[in-house]
Structure formats: C-alpha cells, structure tokens
Design a protein around this nucleic acid. Structure first.
Lengths: 215, 215
DNA sequence: GTCGGCAGAGTTGTTGACAATATAGTTTAC
DNA sequence: GTAAACTATATTGTCAACAACTCTGCCGAC
C-alpha cells in the first residue's frame, strides 16, 4: 500500500483516553472529509483501536456509521477503505445539493427577520473582498462555513441539515480545490453577495433561485 | 412491496444460519416502516438475537444502521425504541421530499425517451380508476410504488435514491393512512396522471413542477 | 402515608479469545 | 522459467462471558 502515512505523526496522544463512541466517529469523519486519509486508503480496525485506545468493536461501530454516510466502503473480509470519489457521483451530488441548498436558503429566509442577515451582509463586504484579492482562502472558506451554518440553523429543519452535512463531508476537499482556481473565489463571492442581498430583503424565492444558480 | 415475504411467519428457519447481516437490517427496517413495530416500542437485543438466531453483536450492528437512518432511537444503557414520528418532523420531511421527488422526476424525464413512460400512463388509466373507486387501495399503493421505483431508477442518481428511500421508510405508514381518507386517492390519481402526462410528453420542467404540487 | 434507599432482576455495554478468510511469499512440478 | 500449490501471516468476522447500568418492587424511617 503506497499510502505514505495513514497514521498521523503522533498516534499516541491524539485523543486522551476520553474518546467516546461519537467522538471516534467524528474524528474519522473529519480526517476523511479533509483528505487526511486519502481516497482509497485502507483503514485497519486494529490500528485505529490502538490509536484511540478503544476496542475493535467500537471501531467497527464507527465504521458502520461511516459506511452509512458513504465516507468509506467496506468489502466483507477485506476491510474498509476511504471511498473513492467518482466523478459521476460528484455530478449526482451536485444535482441534489443544488436543490437542497436552495431549499435551505428559502426556509432560512422564511423563518427569520430580514435584519438578522445584516451582519453576514457586512461580513461579506469589503473585508472579504480583500481576503479574496490577497489570496487568503482560509479566511474566505471559514466565512463561507459561517454562512452555511447560520443558514442551516435558521432553516430549522433537522432532516435537511443532516442531508446537507452528509453531502458536505464528501465535497469539502473538492470545493476547496475549486476555490483556489484563479478567479473562482471572486466569482463565488459575487454570487454569495447576491444571495445574501435577497435574503436581507426577505425575498425568499429570489434567494432560493440565486442560491441554486450559485451551485 | 412485492418482495417475497420479508417477515416470514416462522422465525425459526430464517435461512439456516445464512441470515446475513444485511437481511437482518432489512427485515427490521421493513417491520418498522410498516408499523409492525409501533412507534415507541422497545426493541430488545436479546429477543431479536434469539428470533433470528444470530448473536447480539449482529443485532447491535443492525441497530446502528437503523439509528443512522433515523428509524430507531437509542439511549445509552436504556436500549432502542422505534422512533416516534413527531409531527413537526413530518413537516420538515415533506419540505425536503417535495424538492427531491421533483428533482427525481425531472432527472427521470431528462434521461429517458418519452415513449418509455407509456406503459405507466396506460397503467394509471382506466383500470386504476376502477381500483380507486372500488376502494382497492392495496392495488393503488402497489402501482404507486411501481411508479416511484421506475422514476427513481430512471433518474439514475444513487445519492438521490438513497435519500428518497430513507424518507420513504419514515412516511410509508402515514401515507397509507392518508390515502384511505375519502376522496384522497382519487385526487392523488388525477395528480399522478398529470405528472405522467408531462413525462410522456418529455416536458421535464413541467413534470417537476406538477410533482412538487402533488406533494 | 410518603419519601428515601436498598436489593434483585433484567438489559445494555465491553472485552478478549477464537474462527474464517484473504494476502503474500515460498516451494515444487513440469 | 513459469505456474500451480502450499504455508505463513495478517486482517476481519463471530461469539460468549463478564461488567456496568437501569428499572422495579419492597422495606423501613420519619
């Protein structure tokens, strides 16, 4: 297996001893989402159990949840590997995502007062433009996350939020790479501003439409 | 569901020892979806393990998958119970479902030749009207399933299909009860016909719009 | 009579050992 | 020299016993 180092530099104290079941799942989810584990990399139950100081059964349970989310693929008697992101599946995801993000935005607007989006409008103003122009993508991405989170919260729809989170895990790294492409972040910012403008005006349908076009 | 006897009358010989992991999950899923286990009912690991002649570990694994799908709720040290369907969550689901079913219909039309829907148009014609008028809801529901299945297949989007299946499990019994209400099936049939008409004409956007209104 | 606690039964959570299967490396037959 | 067969190792799958926890019913103190 050519994968350089599956286990991070210091496997020892990555998580004290208080790593509950849910934590294990979330750590693995995070590592997969940010491609700390590369697509196709094998995940060994024994190694992970030792790293997190838990029993194999618990690793197994986490694997079940990860498989359910489509983050890993398990083959009987052959183990688990990080799901390879297949291009055609990416297109599939984007069709769904377009719809759900649009819905999320519309619901968010319908559930809140327009004024509540002012802070985000401001945040996406001048300072953000500087970030984009100077190539500070970390800042840009971080603020995008905030927008996402706020919208999701305002939409107040658990089912929707779960689905979007699940999709987000699979596309995070891809999005990151797209944002870095020249001009892409600037375009994106314009679009997000347009969406936020509609939200600020309380125009739910317009916001939904613009959001869909954004994706 | 045409599937040959998901829950066999005799729990004893659930296929020698070869009642695989996935089977156990599917049987439980089916029982929960059709309210054979009522919402709020407790599921005991030991009992299920004995019924299916598997070890508790396997029941546990199935529980994990069911929990991920939102079909059961697990409280640490207190066991698992069938998820109670909370009214507000139902509304949440319907918002999402409206979008996804619409998308599914649109994709199905875009991916196929209009002629391929003729058989369903015919199926939803006269004979179906008789079923509805005579109160043969089983027949009506069965054909609705077929439409659903064919559409989902034609849409050719795995992610979308998984999400819709997951939603379907939670709403099946509710839908069934709504269909039985007087006049509801007849209205529904008209709407499904309208959608199918648009599909038959190859008008993807119209089909999507009508499908959304249907839900 | 009511509250608090205590014991017993029942259920879930966890663990480690063992079995079954796949992989890699080595030998052997031709 | 190549390919098939065999052995050794590593990994996953399964299980049953044990530990921890929750709930119920009972008893006694006030």
């Amino acid at each position: 297996m050519g994968s350089p180092s599956i286990s991070p530099p210091s496997p020892r104290k990555s998580v004290r001893q208080r790593s509950s079941r849910a934590d294990l799942f979330n750590v693995l989810r995070e590592r997969i989402a940010r491609h700390e584990y590369r697509p196709g990399a094998k995940l060994l139950e024994h190694d992970l159990a030792r790293e997190f100081q838990v029993s194999r059964a618990q690793v197994r349970e986490a694997f079940g949840a990860l498989e359910n989310r489509g983050l890993i693929q398990r083959i009987p008697n052959r183990g688990a590997e990080v799901a390879r992101l297949d291009i055609s599946q990416m297109f599939e995801i984007y069709d769904v995502r377009e719809m759900l993000e649009g819905l999320c935005t519309r619901l968010a607007v319908q559930n809140t007062k327009p004024e509540s989006w002012q802070s985000l409008v401001t945040l996406f103003g001048k300072p953000m433009e500087r970030s984009v122009k100077s190539g500070d993508f970390e800042d840009y991405i971080e603020k995008l996350q905030l927008l996402r989170h706020r919208t999701s919260e305002a939409a107040n729809n658990r089912v929707l939020t779960d689905m979007l989170d699940s999709i987000h895990d699979k596309t995070r790294e891809l999005m990151r790479r797209i944002i870095i492409l020249p001009g892409r972040a600037a375009d994106g910012l314009q679009q997000h501003r347009a969406v936020l403008g509609a939200m600020r005006k309380g125009d739910a349908l317009l916001a939904e439409k613009l959001k869909r076009e954004n994706i």
